[in-house]
Design a binder for these strands. Structure first.
Lengths: 222, 222
DNA sequence: CAGAATAATGAAAAATTTTTCATCATTCTT
DNA sequence: AAGAATGATGAAAAATTTTTCATTATTCTG
Protein backbone atom coordinates (compact mmCIF):
# COMPACT_ATOMS: atom_id res chain seq x y z
CA UNK A 1 0.00 0.00 0.00
CA UNK A 2 1.20 3.50 -0.86
CA UNK A 3 0.70 5.99 1.95
CA UNK A 4 1.32 9.72 2.06
CA UNK A 5 2.11 11.19 5.48
CA UNK A 6 1.71 14.95 5.58
CA UNK A 7 2.97 15.92 9.02
CA UNK A 8 5.48 18.54 10.04
CA UNK A 9 6.27 17.04 13.44
CA UNK A 10 9.23 14.92 12.47
CA UNK A 11 9.09 12.33 15.28
CA UNK A 12 5.42 11.48 14.67
CA UNK A 13 5.93 11.20 10.94
CA UNK A 14 9.05 9.06 11.25
CA UNK A 15 7.47 6.73 13.75
CA UNK A 16 4.45 6.23 11.51
CA UNK A 17 6.65 5.56 8.51
CA UNK A 18 8.69 2.98 10.37
CA UNK A 19 5.56 1.17 11.49
CA UNK A 20 4.04 1.20 8.02
CA UNK A 21 7.25 -0.25 6.62
CA UNK A 22 7.15 -3.01 9.21
CA UNK A 23 3.68 -3.91 7.96
CA UNK A 24 4.96 -4.09 4.41
CA UNK A 25 3.62 -0.75 3.21
CA UNK A 26 5.42 2.14 1.58
CA UNK A 27 5.14 5.60 3.08
CA UNK A 28 6.34 9.00 1.93
CA UNK A 29 6.64 11.98 4.27
CA UNK A 30 5.98 15.58 3.27
CA UNK A 31 6.02 18.53 5.62
CA UNK A 32 3.68 21.17 4.26
CA UNK A 33 0.44 21.53 2.34
CA UNK A 34 1.98 22.54 -0.97
CA UNK A 35 4.20 19.47 -1.01
CA UNK A 36 1.07 17.34 -0.67
CA UNK A 37 -0.39 18.79 -3.83
CA UNK A 38 2.89 18.26 -5.68
CA UNK A 39 3.32 14.70 -4.54
CA UNK A 40 -0.24 13.70 -5.29
CA UNK A 41 0.17 14.70 -8.90
CA UNK A 42 3.09 12.28 -9.22
CA UNK A 43 2.14 9.24 -7.16
CA UNK A 44 -1.16 7.40 -6.86
CA UNK A 45 -1.65 6.94 -3.12
CA UNK A 46 -3.98 4.48 -1.45
CA UNK A 47 -4.52 6.78 1.48
CA UNK A 48 -3.41 10.24 2.58
CA UNK A 49 -2.83 11.21 6.22
CA UNK A 50 -3.11 14.98 6.60
CA UNK A 51 -2.08 16.89 9.66
CA UNK A 52 -4.58 19.62 10.47
CA UNK A 53 -1.89 22.21 11.28
CA UNK A 54 0.80 22.44 8.64
CA UNK A 55 2.93 25.20 7.13
CA UNK A 56 1.75 27.02 3.96
CA UNK A 57 -1.58 25.20 3.54
CA UNK A 58 -3.53 23.62 6.42
CA UNK A 59 -4.69 20.03 6.17
CA UNK A 60 -8.23 21.27 5.80
CA UNK A 61 -7.33 23.52 2.89
CA UNK A 62 -5.35 20.78 1.20
CA UNK A 63 -8.28 18.45 1.62
CA UNK A 64 -10.71 20.90 0.05
CA UNK A 65 -8.33 21.59 -2.81
CA UNK A 66 -7.79 17.92 -3.57
CA UNK A 67 -11.52 17.29 -3.66
CA UNK A 68 -12.08 20.35 -5.79
CA UNK A 69 -9.57 18.95 -8.28
CA UNK A 70 -11.59 15.74 -8.43
CA UNK A 71 -9.06 13.70 -6.47
CA UNK A 72 -10.90 11.02 -4.52
CA UNK A 73 -8.08 9.29 -2.63
CA UNK A 74 -9.16 8.43 0.92
CA UNK A 75 -8.05 11.14 3.35
CA UNK A 76 -7.68 10.91 7.11
CA UNK A 77 -7.15 14.14 9.01
CA UNK A 78 -4.90 14.18 12.08
CA UNK A 79 -5.92 16.80 14.60
CA UNK A 80 -4.94 18.00 18.03
CA UNK A 81 -7.04 17.08 21.03
CA UNK A 82 -8.36 20.56 21.76
CA UNK A 83 -10.34 21.21 18.60
CA UNK A 84 -13.22 18.84 19.23
CA UNK A 85 -15.83 20.35 16.97
CA UNK A 86 -13.56 19.84 13.99
CA UNK A 87 -14.99 16.49 13.12
CA UNK A 88 -17.79 17.82 10.99
CA UNK A 89 -15.63 20.53 9.49
CA UNK A 90 -13.28 17.77 8.39
CA UNK A 91 -16.05 15.73 6.85
CA UNK A 92 -17.42 18.82 5.15
CA UNK A 93 -14.06 19.43 3.57
CA UNK A 94 -14.26 15.98 2.04
CA UNK A 95 -12.13 13.98 4.47
CA UNK A 96 -13.11 10.37 4.98
CA UNK A 97 -12.14 10.15 8.59
CA UNK A 98 -10.57 12.03 11.41
CA UNK A 99 -8.32 11.01 14.29
CA UNK A 100 -7.17 13.00 17.30
CA UNK A 101 -3.60 13.07 18.53
CA UNK A 102 -2.12 11.36 20.32
CA UNK A 103 -2.99 8.05 18.68
CA UNK A 104 -1.47 4.59 18.71
CA UNK A 105 -0.27 2.94 15.53
CA UNK A 106 -2.91 0.24 15.88
CA UNK A 107 -5.53 2.92 16.07
CA UNK A 108 -4.50 4.62 12.87
CA UNK A 109 -4.06 1.32 11.07
CA UNK A 110 -7.59 0.37 12.09
CA UNK A 111 -8.92 3.68 10.81
CA UNK A 112 -7.09 3.27 7.53
CA UNK A 113 -8.51 -0.19 7.06
CA UNK A 114 -12.00 1.00 7.92
CA UNK A 115 -11.76 3.85 5.45
CA UNK A 116 -10.41 1.58 2.74
CA UNK A 117 -13.16 -0.91 3.39
CA UNK A 118 -15.74 1.83 3.07
CA UNK A 119 -13.99 3.17 0.04
CA UNK A 120 -14.08 -0.16 -1.70
CA UNK A 121 -17.72 -0.42 -0.83
CA UNK A 122 -18.26 2.51 -3.13
CA UNK A 123 -19.06 -0.26 -5.55
CA UNK A 124 -22.62 -0.24 -4.21
CA UNK A 125 -22.72 -3.97 -4.81
CA UNK A 126 -20.98 -6.94 -3.19
CA UNK A 127 -21.37 -9.71 -5.76
CA UNK A 128 -21.59 -13.41 -4.89
CA UNK A 129 -22.33 -16.23 -7.30
CA UNK A 130 -25.02 -15.04 -9.68
CA UNK A 131 -26.27 -12.59 -7.08
CA UNK A 132 -25.20 -9.39 -5.38
CA UNK A 133 -25.83 -7.55 -2.14
CA UNK A 134 -26.92 -3.98 -2.79
CA UNK A 135 -25.38 -1.91 -0.02
CA UNK A 136 -27.63 1.07 -0.57
CA UNK A 137 -31.01 -0.63 -0.61
CA UNK A 138 -29.75 -3.39 1.70
CA UNK A 139 -31.30 -6.09 -0.41
CA UNK A 140 -30.07 -9.05 -2.44
CA UNK A 141 -30.21 -8.54 -6.19
CA UNK A 142 -31.42 -11.50 -8.21
CA UNK A 143 -31.56 -11.87 -11.99
CA UNK A 144 -35.28 -11.20 -11.54
CA UNK A 145 -36.20 -9.13 -8.53
CA UNK A 146 -34.72 -8.71 -5.10
CA UNK A 147 -34.95 -9.95 -1.51
CA UNK A 148 -35.28 -7.37 1.21
CA UNK A 149 -33.15 -8.11 4.26
CA UNK A 150 -33.67 -6.96 7.81
CA UNK A 151 -30.91 -4.87 9.35
CA UNK A 152 -29.27 -7.73 11.21
CA UNK A 153 -29.58 -10.08 8.25
CA UNK A 154 -27.99 -7.42 6.07
CA UNK A 155 -25.08 -6.86 8.41
CA UNK A 156 -24.56 -10.57 8.76
CA UNK A 157 -24.48 -11.16 5.02
CA UNK A 158 -22.26 -8.16 4.43
CA UNK A 159 -19.79 -9.44 6.98
CA UNK A 160 -19.73 -12.82 5.27
CA UNK A 161 -19.21 -11.25 1.87
CA UNK A 162 -16.37 -9.08 3.12
CA UNK A 163 -14.75 -12.24 4.42
CA UNK A 164 -15.66 -14.57 1.60
CA UNK A 165 -13.89 -17.91 1.89
CA UNK A 166 -12.66 -17.35 5.45
CA UNK A 167 -13.80 -19.34 8.44
CA UNK A 168 -15.75 -17.01 10.69
CA UNK A 169 -16.12 -17.82 14.36
CA UNK A 170 -19.28 -17.13 16.30
CA UNK A 171 -17.21 -14.79 18.46
CA UNK A 172 -16.21 -12.53 15.59
CA UNK A 173 -19.84 -12.37 14.46
CA UNK A 174 -20.87 -11.32 17.96
CA UNK A 175 -18.19 -8.69 17.97
CA UNK A 176 -18.57 -7.33 14.47
CA UNK A 177 -22.28 -7.71 13.76
CA UNK A 178 -23.72 -7.37 17.24
CA UNK A 179 -20.94 -5.26 18.80
CA UNK A 180 -20.82 -7.52 21.85
CA UNK A 181 -17.56 -7.93 23.70
CA UNK A 182 -18.55 -11.24 25.24
CA UNK A 183 -20.37 -14.25 23.84
CA UNK A 184 -24.10 -13.90 24.53
CA UNK A 185 -25.86 -16.49 26.66
CA UNK A 186 -28.44 -16.96 23.93
CA UNK A 187 -28.21 -18.14 20.35
CA UNK A 188 -29.05 -14.90 18.52
CA UNK A 189 -26.35 -15.63 15.99
CA UNK A 190 -27.77 -19.01 15.06
CA UNK A 191 -31.30 -17.68 14.81
CA UNK A 192 -30.40 -14.75 12.61
CA UNK A 193 -28.26 -17.05 10.54
CA UNK A 194 -31.14 -19.45 10.12
CA UNK A 195 -33.39 -16.66 8.86
CA UNK A 196 -30.76 -15.36 6.48
CA UNK A 197 -30.15 -18.86 5.15
CA UNK A 198 -33.86 -19.39 4.67
CA UNK A 199 -34.27 -16.16 2.72
CA UNK A 200 -31.28 -16.89 0.52
CA UNK A 201 -31.99 -20.55 -0.10
CA UNK A 202 -35.70 -20.21 -0.73
CA UNK A 203 -34.99 -17.99 -3.70
CA UNK A 204 -31.57 -19.02 -4.97
CA UNK A 205 -32.05 -22.77 -4.41
CA UNK A 206 -28.46 -22.89 -3.24
CA UNK A 207 -26.66 -23.09 0.06
CA UNK A 208 -24.00 -20.45 0.60
CA UNK A 209 -23.21 -20.57 4.29
CA UNK A 210 -21.58 -23.80 5.40
CA UNK A 211 -21.16 -24.75 9.04
CA UNK A 212 -17.79 -25.94 10.25
CA UNK A 213 -18.45 -27.94 13.36
CA UNK A 214 -16.79 -26.43 16.39
CA UNK A 215 -15.17 -23.64 14.39
CA UNK A 216 -17.80 -21.37 12.90
CA UNK A 217 -19.11 -20.65 9.44
CA UNK A 218 -17.79 -20.12 5.96
CA UNK A 219 -19.34 -18.36 3.01
CA UNK A 220 -18.81 -20.08 -0.31
CA UNK A 221 -20.09 -18.46 -3.47
CA UNK A 222 -18.44 -20.23 -6.40
CA UNK B 1 -23.63 16.82 -18.43
CA UNK B 2 -21.21 14.96 -20.68
CA UNK B 3 -22.54 11.59 -21.84
CA UNK B 4 -20.86 8.89 -23.92
CA UNK B 5 -23.20 6.70 -25.95
CA UNK B 6 -21.52 3.50 -27.13
CA UNK B 7 -24.10 1.90 -29.40
CA UNK B 8 -23.75 0.55 -32.91
CA UNK B 9 -27.44 0.71 -33.74
CA UNK B 10 -27.56 4.14 -35.34
CA UNK B 11 -31.28 4.95 -34.78
CA UNK B 12 -31.15 4.19 -31.07
CA UNK B 13 -27.98 6.19 -30.56
CA UNK B 14 -29.23 9.17 -32.55
CA UNK B 15 -32.55 9.24 -30.77
CA UNK B 16 -30.82 9.19 -27.38
CA UNK B 17 -28.45 11.95 -28.40
CA UNK B 18 -31.31 14.15 -29.62
CA UNK B 19 -33.17 13.67 -26.35
CA UNK B 20 -30.10 14.40 -24.24
CA UNK B 21 -29.51 17.59 -26.22
CA UNK B 22 -33.10 18.63 -25.62
CA UNK B 23 -32.44 18.28 -21.89
CA UNK B 24 -29.37 20.47 -22.16
CA UNK B 25 -26.75 17.71 -22.04
CA UNK B 26 -23.96 16.94 -24.43
CA UNK B 27 -23.66 13.46 -25.90
CA UNK B 28 -21.04 11.80 -28.07
CA UNK B 29 -21.72 8.64 -30.04
CA UNK B 30 -19.15 5.91 -30.66
CA UNK B 31 -19.86 2.63 -32.40
CA UNK B 32 -17.45 0.08 -31.07
CA UNK B 33 -15.62 -0.93 -27.93
CA UNK B 34 -12.20 0.34 -28.94
CA UNK B 35 -13.57 3.79 -29.69
CA UNK B 36 -14.89 3.91 -26.13
CA UNK B 37 -11.43 3.41 -24.70
CA UNK B 38 -10.02 6.09 -27.02
CA UNK B 39 -12.70 8.61 -26.23
CA UNK B 40 -12.54 8.07 -22.49
CA UNK B 41 -8.87 8.97 -22.45
CA UNK B 42 -9.70 12.35 -24.02
CA UNK B 43 -12.96 13.46 -22.42
CA UNK B 44 -14.10 13.26 -18.80
CA UNK B 45 -17.63 11.87 -19.01
CA UNK B 46 -20.28 12.06 -16.31
CA UNK B 47 -21.79 8.77 -17.40
CA UNK B 48 -21.14 6.11 -20.03
CA UNK B 49 -23.87 4.11 -21.73
CA UNK B 50 -22.46 0.85 -23.07
CA UNK B 51 -24.28 -1.44 -25.45
CA UNK B 52 -23.74 -5.07 -24.49
CA UNK B 53 -23.21 -6.21 -28.09
CA UNK B 54 -20.74 -4.09 -29.98
CA UNK B 55 -18.09 -4.65 -32.64
CA UNK B 56 -14.48 -5.34 -31.61
CA UNK B 57 -14.97 -5.25 -27.81
CA UNK B 58 -18.26 -6.08 -26.10
CA UNK B 59 -19.75 -3.67 -23.58
CA UNK B 60 -18.88 -6.11 -20.84
CA UNK B 61 -15.24 -6.28 -21.89
CA UNK B 62 -15.00 -2.52 -22.19
CA UNK B 63 -16.49 -2.18 -18.75
CA UNK B 64 -13.98 -4.60 -17.22
CA UNK B 65 -11.09 -2.87 -18.99
CA UNK B 66 -12.14 0.59 -17.82
CA UNK B 67 -12.40 -0.59 -14.24
CA UNK B 68 -9.08 -2.38 -14.50
CA UNK B 69 -7.53 0.92 -15.60
CA UNK B 70 -8.93 2.55 -12.49
CA UNK B 71 -11.59 4.53 -14.35
CA UNK B 72 -14.59 5.00 -12.09
CA UNK B 73 -17.02 6.87 -14.33
CA UNK B 74 -20.56 5.58 -13.81
CA UNK B 75 -21.44 2.96 -16.41
CA UNK B 76 -24.88 1.78 -17.48
CA UNK B 77 -25.03 -1.31 -19.66
CA UNK B 78 -27.70 -1.58 -22.37
CA UNK B 79 -28.73 -5.14 -23.09
CA UNK B 80 -31.20 -7.03 -25.22
CA UNK B 81 -34.31 -8.50 -23.65
CA UNK B 82 -33.34 -12.14 -24.03
CA UNK B 83 -30.24 -12.22 -21.85
CA UNK B 84 -31.94 -11.94 -18.50
CA UNK B 85 -29.28 -13.45 -16.28
CA UNK B 86 -26.81 -10.82 -17.40
CA UNK B 87 -27.65 -8.43 -14.64
CA UNK B 88 -25.21 -9.87 -12.16
CA UNK B 89 -22.55 -10.42 -14.80
CA UNK B 90 -22.84 -6.73 -15.55
CA UNK B 91 -22.51 -5.74 -11.92
CA UNK B 92 -19.57 -8.09 -11.50
CA UNK B 93 -17.83 -6.41 -14.39
CA UNK B 94 -18.09 -3.13 -12.53
CA UNK B 95 -21.16 -1.60 -14.16
CA UNK B 96 -23.30 0.60 -11.96
CA UNK B 97 -26.59 -0.26 -13.55
CA UNK B 98 -28.19 -2.19 -16.34
CA UNK B 99 -31.19 -1.54 -18.56
CA UNK B 100 -32.92 -3.83 -21.04
CA UNK B 101 -33.92 -2.75 -24.52
CA UNK B 102 -36.30 -1.45 -25.56
CA UNK B 103 -36.38 1.41 -23.08
CA UNK B 104 -38.02 4.82 -23.04
CA UNK B 105 -35.95 7.96 -22.75
CA UNK B 106 -37.55 8.76 -19.41
CA UNK B 107 -36.49 5.36 -18.18
CA UNK B 108 -32.86 5.81 -19.07
CA UNK B 109 -32.80 9.35 -17.74
CA UNK B 110 -34.19 8.09 -14.45
CA UNK B 111 -31.51 5.39 -14.29
CA UNK B 112 -28.80 7.89 -15.05
CA UNK B 113 -30.00 10.16 -12.30
CA UNK B 114 -30.25 7.27 -9.86
CA UNK B 115 -26.73 6.15 -10.68
CA UNK B 116 -25.36 9.66 -10.35
CA UNK B 117 -27.14 10.08 -7.05
CA UNK B 118 -25.62 6.84 -5.80
CA UNK B 119 -22.28 7.84 -7.19
CA UNK B 120 -22.30 11.12 -5.36
CA UNK B 121 -23.22 9.26 -2.23
CA UNK B 122 -19.82 7.66 -2.35
CA UNK B 123 -18.99 10.39 0.11
CA UNK B 124 -20.32 8.25 2.96
CA UNK B 125 -21.44 11.44 4.66
CA UNK B 126 -24.05 14.06 3.81
CA UNK B 127 -23.06 17.04 5.92
CA UNK B 128 -25.50 19.63 7.24
CA UNK B 129 -24.73 22.43 9.65
CA UNK B 130 -22.33 21.12 12.26
CA UNK B 131 -23.63 17.61 11.70
CA UNK B 132 -23.58 14.90 9.08
CA UNK B 133 -25.70 11.96 8.02
CA UNK B 134 -23.62 8.80 7.83
CA UNK B 135 -25.00 6.83 4.90
CA UNK B 136 -23.37 3.60 5.93
CA UNK B 137 -24.44 3.41 9.55
CA UNK B 138 -27.62 5.37 8.81
CA UNK B 139 -27.13 7.62 11.79
CA UNK B 140 -26.53 11.32 12.40
CA UNK B 141 -22.98 12.21 13.40
CA UNK B 142 -22.65 14.79 16.14
CA UNK B 143 -19.47 16.38 17.47
CA UNK B 144 -19.94 14.00 20.40
CA UNK B 145 -21.79 10.80 19.59
CA UNK B 146 -24.49 9.88 17.12
CA UNK B 147 -28.26 9.48 16.78
CA UNK B 148 -29.55 6.25 15.31
CA UNK B 149 -32.37 6.74 12.83
CA UNK B 150 -35.05 4.27 11.83
CA UNK B 151 -35.18 3.27 8.18
CA UNK B 152 -37.95 5.68 7.22
CA UNK B 153 -36.43 8.52 9.23
CA UNK B 154 -33.14 7.90 7.50
CA UNK B 155 -34.65 7.92 4.04
CA UNK B 156 -36.59 11.05 4.85
CA UNK B 157 -33.54 12.91 6.09
CA UNK B 158 -31.43 11.71 3.18
CA UNK B 159 -34.02 12.98 0.75
CA UNK B 160 -34.04 16.35 2.45
CA UNK B 161 -30.25 16.55 2.38
CA UNK B 162 -30.09 15.64 -1.29
CA UNK B 163 -32.52 18.47 -1.93
CA UNK B 164 -31.16 20.96 0.56
CA UNK B 165 -32.71 24.38 0.16
CA UNK B 166 -35.49 23.22 -2.18
CA UNK B 167 -39.18 23.23 -1.30
CA UNK B 168 -40.31 19.63 -1.11
CA UNK B 169 -43.95 18.79 -1.56
CA UNK B 170 -45.67 16.09 0.41
CA UNK B 171 -46.32 14.34 -2.91
CA UNK B 172 -42.65 14.01 -3.80
CA UNK B 173 -41.95 12.63 -0.33
CA UNK B 174 -44.68 10.03 -0.83
CA UNK B 175 -43.22 9.14 -4.18
CA UNK B 176 -39.54 9.12 -3.30
CA UNK B 177 -39.48 7.98 0.31
CA UNK B 178 -42.56 5.77 0.44
CA UNK B 179 -42.70 4.78 -3.26
CA UNK B 180 -46.39 5.58 -3.40
CA UNK B 181 -47.91 6.76 -6.67
CA UNK B 182 -50.88 8.42 -5.03
CA UNK B 183 -51.20 10.53 -1.91
CA UNK B 184 -52.03 8.30 1.05
CA UNK B 185 -55.27 8.84 2.93
CA UNK B 186 -53.31 9.00 6.16
CA UNK B 187 -50.65 11.33 7.45
CA UNK B 188 -47.65 8.98 7.53
CA UNK B 189 -45.46 11.73 6.18
CA UNK B 190 -46.32 14.17 8.96
CA UNK B 191 -45.87 11.54 11.64
CA UNK B 192 -42.49 10.37 10.41
CA UNK B 193 -41.48 13.97 9.98
CA UNK B 194 -42.49 14.73 13.52
CA UNK B 195 -40.36 11.89 14.85
CA UNK B 196 -37.38 12.90 12.75
CA UNK B 197 -37.73 16.49 13.89
CA UNK B 198 -37.92 15.39 17.49
CA UNK B 199 -34.78 13.29 17.24
CA UNK B 200 -32.84 16.05 15.52
CA UNK B 201 -34.04 18.91 17.67
CA UNK B 202 -33.68 17.16 20.99
CA UNK B 203 -29.97 16.76 20.40
CA UNK B 204 -28.97 19.62 18.15
CA UNK B 205 -31.21 22.24 19.80
CA UNK B 206 -31.93 23.56 16.34
CA UNK B 207 -34.78 23.38 13.85
CA UNK B 208 -33.78 22.24 10.39
CA UNK B 209 -37.02 21.38 8.64
CA UNK B 210 -39.28 24.36 8.07
CA UNK B 211 -42.90 24.01 7.00
CA UNK B 212 -44.18 26.09 4.12
CA UNK B 213 -47.91 26.27 4.50
CA UNK B 214 -49.74 24.72 1.59
CA UNK B 215 -46.50 23.92 -0.25
CA UNK B 216 -44.44 21.42 1.66
CA UNK B 217 -41.19 21.49 3.57
CA UNK B 218 -37.75 22.91 3.22
CA UNK B 219 -34.50 21.83 4.80
CA UNK B 220 -32.27 24.68 5.92
CA UNK B 221 -28.84 23.92 7.37
CA UNK B 222 -26.91 27.17 7.40
C1' DC C 1 -62.08 37.84 13.16
C1' DA C 2 -64.59 33.43 11.86
C1' DG C 3 -64.40 29.55 9.27
C1' DA C 4 -61.89 26.53 6.30
C1' DA C 5 -57.85 24.39 5.05
C1' DT C 6 -53.56 22.65 6.37
C1' DA C 7 -50.22 20.83 9.93
C1' DA C 8 -48.79 18.87 14.31
C1' DT C 9 -49.32 15.75 17.94
C1' DG C 10 -50.29 11.84 21.29
C1' DA C 11 -51.57 7.53 21.61
C1' DA C 12 -53.18 3.15 19.99
C1' DA C 13 -53.05 -0.54 16.51
C1' DA C 14 -50.59 -3.22 13.20
C1' DA C 15 -46.56 -4.95 11.33
C1' DT C 16 -41.90 -6.11 11.57
C1' DT C 17 -37.68 -7.25 13.74
C1' DT C 18 -34.97 -8.91 17.42
C1' DT C 19 -34.27 -11.84 21.14
C1' DT C 20 -35.27 -15.69 24.15
C1' DC C 21 -36.24 -20.36 25.13
C1' DA C 22 -37.24 -25.15 24.78
C1' DT C 23 -36.64 -28.94 21.83
C1' DC C 24 -34.76 -31.49 18.15
C1' DA C 25 -30.80 -32.82 14.99
C1' DT C 26 -26.13 -33.43 13.87
C1' DT C 27 -21.35 -34.22 14.58
C1' DC C 28 -17.54 -35.64 17.24
C1' DT C 29 -15.19 -38.57 20.71
C1' DT C 30 -14.18 -42.74 22.66
C1' DA D 1 -22.85 -47.15 18.92
C1' DA D 2 -23.66 -44.13 23.19
C1' DG D 3 -23.05 -39.91 25.26
C1' DA D 4 -21.58 -35.24 25.10
C1' DA D 5 -20.95 -31.17 22.75
C1' DT D 6 -22.43 -28.25 19.22
C1' DG D 7 -25.73 -26.49 15.95
C1' DA D 8 -30.64 -25.90 13.97
C1' DT D 9 -35.32 -24.89 14.42
C1' DG D 10 -40.17 -23.41 15.65
C1' DA D 11 -42.60 -20.64 18.27
C1' DA D 12 -43.38 -17.25 21.75
C1' DA D 13 -41.97 -12.94 24.03
C1' DA D 14 -40.01 -8.43 23.84
C1' DA D 15 -38.71 -4.50 21.49
C1' DT D 16 -38.94 -1.52 17.72
C1' DT D 17 -40.89 0.54 13.75
C1' DT D 18 -44.59 1.82 10.86
C1' DT D 19 -49.13 3.14 10.20
C1' DT D 20 -53.67 4.72 11.58
C1' DC D 21 -56.80 7.69 13.89
C1' DA D 22 -58.76 11.27 16.63
C1' DT D 23 -57.78 15.62 18.46
C1' DT D 24 -55.47 19.96 18.81
C1' DA D 25 -52.89 23.81 16.81
C1' DT D 26 -51.67 26.86 13.16
C1' DT D 27 -52.14 29.48 9.00
C1' DC D 28 -54.64 31.41 5.38
C1' DT D 29 -58.82 33.63 3.15
C1' DG D 30 -62.37 36.63 2.79
Amino acid sequence: MEILIAEDERPIAESLKKNFLAEGHHAIIVEDGEEVLNSVSKILYDVILLDWRMPKLSGLEVCKKLRAFGNCTPIILLTALNDISNKVEALNAGADDYITKPFSFDEIMARINAVLRRFQQTTTYLPFGDFALNLITRSVELPNGQIKLSEKEFELLRFFLLNKGAIISRESLCEKVWSLKCTPMTNIVEVTLKNLRKKLESVTKRSFIKTIYGEGYIFIAD
